[in-house]
Design a protein around this nucleic acid. Structure first.
Length: 441
DNA sequence: TGAGATGATTATTC
DNA sequence: GAATAATCATCTCA
């Protein structure tokens, strides 16, 4: 409450010489003679100076008297002007701040993520982008999309609720401060401009709180995104058909289980590892990378534990042999180039037992079709089949079941032989009827 | 719930 | 740049 005397003293401003007051007085609202005016001003100043020395009741009475004083409006105007000139001029330069770049960045990000601004499908665009980056797989992705969208919507709701709360609190506080200042302006020089400035300060304080809110929201969105994008988290086992296709190829090319890029693409298509997303790491589609991963894992794990995979190898051998026989039989009748080649022929890969899953590895390997081989291979395939069945079904063959399949594709160094060799799931004689001769490789 | 299976990633090697 | 080996993270199943 002692602000006024201090102000006036510290700046050495005499009211008598103040133009505002002088004008006010000249308007005829003040006293008419100079002596009277001086006396009035002196009285007021004296009252103000001693107001703090008085008791509360006395001060209240004085305050009331001052408020009712005929010179009060003029004095108030003068004090306000002095305050404006001294205080506001110091602060004025600091108030013109450029928009905060960090706040702008946060706003932009929230807009881009669909958190701020008009709702546009709960960030479906972001979800789609994220899905594209993962090279997502149809149905699985739609579920994850909805999950992503739901979480983003949740973040959006929390953000808007909190924002609303802050805005409400800001408005309430501003109103409260404005009322307080207006009230105080009855006893101390507070101009509307100063109230405005105070409102600005309050708004800036609340903006900094808002910025924290925006920052937290951005962080939440980033975490959500990173989780959604983290491929490891959303690993899905290939379906049974896909695994079978890959295994069929693997065991039919056991001597050289390194599918070409074209073969990988074809396998990816056949396995419904359907994505067109270009890999971020290499210029290889994600589907091809899936296939590559699969073959990489398969080769290593097979090599590490051949014994464990024998049964699997036998199973695929038998299946391939059966397919080969049946296809060869049909093929010999139709003798059409469009008919899949026999499994016994080089690089052939038959999935006829799975209907539309039929795939010719000839095309995968780029080998040409040799329709003439079909008939010639029938007998050897039948022999192979007979042999395989004898191994698995308990024919009194001299070979033990464990001997039926031998990992001949692997050389003594633990690596696959470079040279294409008649492969693996074959009769011990490795005759022409070898089911997986894989000579194409 | 734990063990094994499996797809993906990373570092290293050639 | 591709393959390998080791490892991680998740899934599946008993």
């Amino acid at each position: 409450m002692d602000e006024q005397p201090r102000l006036m003293h510290s700046h050495g401003v005499g009211m008598a010489g103040h133009p505002g007051l002088a004008q006010h007085m000249q308007d005829g609202t003040a006293g008419t003679d100079g002596e009277g005016r001086k006396q009035d001003i002196g009285d007021i100043l004296q009252q103000i100076m001693t107001i703090t020395d008085q008791s509360l009741d006395e001060a209240q009475a004085r305050k009331h008297a001052l408020n009712c004083h005929r010179m009060k409006p003029a004095l108030f105007n003068v004090l306000c002007e002095i305050k404006e000139k001294t205080v506001l001029s110091i602060r004025g330069a600091q108030e013109e701040e450029p928009p905060d770049p960090q706040l702008m960045r946060l706003d932009n990000m929230l807009l881009a993520e669909g958190v701020a601004g008009p709702e546009k499908g709960g960030g479906s665009a972001a979800a789609a982008a994220a899905a594209a980056a993962t090279g997502g797989v149809g149905a699985d992705n739609s579920a994850e999309h909805s999950d992503y969208r739901a979480k983003l919507t949740q973040i959006r709701q929390i953000y808007h609720t909190e924002l609303e709360k802050y805005e409400q609190a800001c408005n309430e506080f501003t109103t409260h401060v404005m009322n307080l200042l207006r009230e105080q302006s009855r006893t101390r020089p507070i101009s509307p401009k100063e109230i405005e400035r105070m409102v600005g300060i309050i708004h800036r304080k609340f903006s900094s709180i808002q910025m924290q809110l925006k920052q937290s929201t951005c962080e939440a969105v980033m975490i959500l995104r990173s989780r959604f994008l983290d491929a490891r988290r959303k690993r899905r086992n290939f379906n049974k058909q896909a695994t079978e296709i890959l295994n069929e190829y693997f065991y039919s090319h056991l001597s050289n289980p390194y599918p070409s890029e074209e073969a990988k693409e074809e396998l990816a298509k056949k396995c419904s590892i359907t994505v067109s997303q270009v890999s971020r790491i290499k210029r290889m589609s994600r589907s091809d990378r899936n296939v590559s991963n699969w073959f990489g894992n398969k080769r290593i794990r097979y090599k590490k534990n051949i014994g464990k995979f024998q049964e699997e190898a036998n199973m695929y051998a038998a299946r391939t042999a059966v397919n080969a026989t049946s296809v060869s039989a049909h093929g010999s009748q139709a003798n059409s180039p469009s008919t899949p080649n026999s499994a016994g022929s080089a690089g052939s890969f038959n999935m006829s037992n799975s209907g539309d899953l039929f795939m010719s590895v000839q095309s995968l390997n780029g080998d040409s079709y040799q329709g003439g081989q079909v008939g010639a291979n029938i007998q050897s395939q039948v022999d192979t089949l007979r042999h395989v069945i004898s191994q698995t079904g308990g024919y009194s063959d001299s070979l033990a079941a464990s001997q039926m399949y031998s990992p001949q594709g692997i050389n003594t160094n633990g690596g696959w032989q470079d040279a294409p060799t008649p492969s693996s799931v074959t009769s011990p004689t490795e005759g022409p009827g070898s089911v997986h001769s894989d000579t194409s490789n």
